[in-house]
């Protein structure tokens, strides 16, 4: 709007500004515009809501659960009508069953909370805006959860208390807690690999290889979770499986060197070497289980894939 002033040459020219550079502030009563928002869009794919399958599953559960409760009540009332003694016995049995269910659910809930604690610590360690004390408290909570699974917990706790920055806290946690746990998990993975290879070797049919690997894998996952102070209940196991699926790709690629080293080492062990030579699937099963151990360890530890 400043330099461009079209017009006819026989009309008086519009007032011209000198082509001189005179930077400065403009005196004006125009109000300042609002600063534009800098909020770059998220590139993550949109979250998928509850799909049709979700609704169907929910409906089925409701149907089953509801009819179970209704039939329990109906049954108890029937018995009551037959004889009060029988009725009270039925009620007692039912109450005991509900209590057992409740206790189980409570344990599941507590186990799930522990997993959330790990997630919370992971977040605290990566968020630069997190105050040091909050992160430290989360780290100590996590350490308490590990309890005796770590050597020299008292020294580790003091070391964490002495850290003066989040970066130090992160490094110290890695140094004194996560690395030993990772080492334990690695050993569990090796053990599982060896056993898996042996099991595959004696399996009557190659079709069972996958089953063997799957079952031993599930056991391994629970072992590694326990190493990390988690109680591997149903919900935690499922939660971990999901996480592992998420991180497995990264682990597989990043630890290509380590995992291939494991192949090599497993191959160099007298047991596996011979089994692997004789039974084609055995080496592969061993390798898969070893990698699974690494992936689960990553999913269970508060540094997650930020460890590197």
């Amino acid at each position: 709007m400043s330099g461009f002033r079209p017009g006819f040459s026989d009309e008086p020219p519009p007032p011209q500004r000198e082509p001189v550079l005179e930077p400065g502030f403009v005196e004006t009563t125009t109000p300042a515009p609002a600063a534009p928002d800098w909020s770059p869009a998220s590139t993550a794919p949109p979250a998928t809501g509850v799909g049709a399958l979700g609704w169907i599953a929910g409906g089925l559960c409701l149907l089953l659960g509801g009819s179970l409760v209704m039939s329990m009540i109906g049954f108890a009332m029937d018995q009551m009508a037959r004889s009060p003694t029988l009725g009270f016995v039925t009620l007692g049995v039912q109450a005991a069953a509900v209590l057992a269910l409740g206790a189980g659910a409570g344990m599941e809930l507590r186990a799930w909370r522990r997993l959330r604690l790990v997630d919370g610590l992971r977040l605290a360690l990566t968020d630069p805006a997190m105050p040091l004390e909050t992160a430290r408290a989360a780290a100590i909570d996590w350490l308490d959860l590990l309890g005796a699974r770590l050597p020299e917990v008292a020294i580790t706790r003091q070391a964490l208390l002495d850290c003066t920055s989040i970066a130090e806290l992160r490094a110290m946690l890695d140094h004194r807690a996560i690395a030993p746990l990772q080492e334990q998990s690695r050993r569990a993975g090796e053990r599982a690999g060896l056993q898996g290879a042996a099991l595959v070797a004696i399996a009557p049919s190659p079709a069972l290889d996958g089953l063997v690997a799957g079952v031993r894998g599930l056991v391994l996952l629970r072992e590694v979770a326990a190493i990390h102070g988690l109680r591997p209940g149903l919900s935690v196991t499922i939660g971990l499986l999901r996480r592992v699926a998420h991180t497995a790709l990264g682990v597989a690629a990043v630890d290509v060197a380590a995992a291939s080293a494991a192949d090599y080492a497993l191959g160099a062990m007298p047991g596996v070497k011979h089994i692997a030579a004789a039974v084609p699937g055995a080496g592969l099963t061993a390798r898969r289980l070893y990698r699974l151990a690494l992936a689960v360890a990553e999913a269970c530890s508060p540094r997650g894939d930020f460890t590197r």
Partner: peptide, 25 residues
């Protein structure tokens, strides 16, 4: 408070002598 600032027109190549005001900003 924010203020309105303008530099003037930026030339697209080395400006001619008349462009310079002799002052330094």
């Amino acid at each position: 408070a924010p203020r309105a600032y303008r530099v003037g027109s930026v030339p697209i190549r080395q400006p001619p002598a008349g462009f310079w005001s002799g002052r330094s900003f």
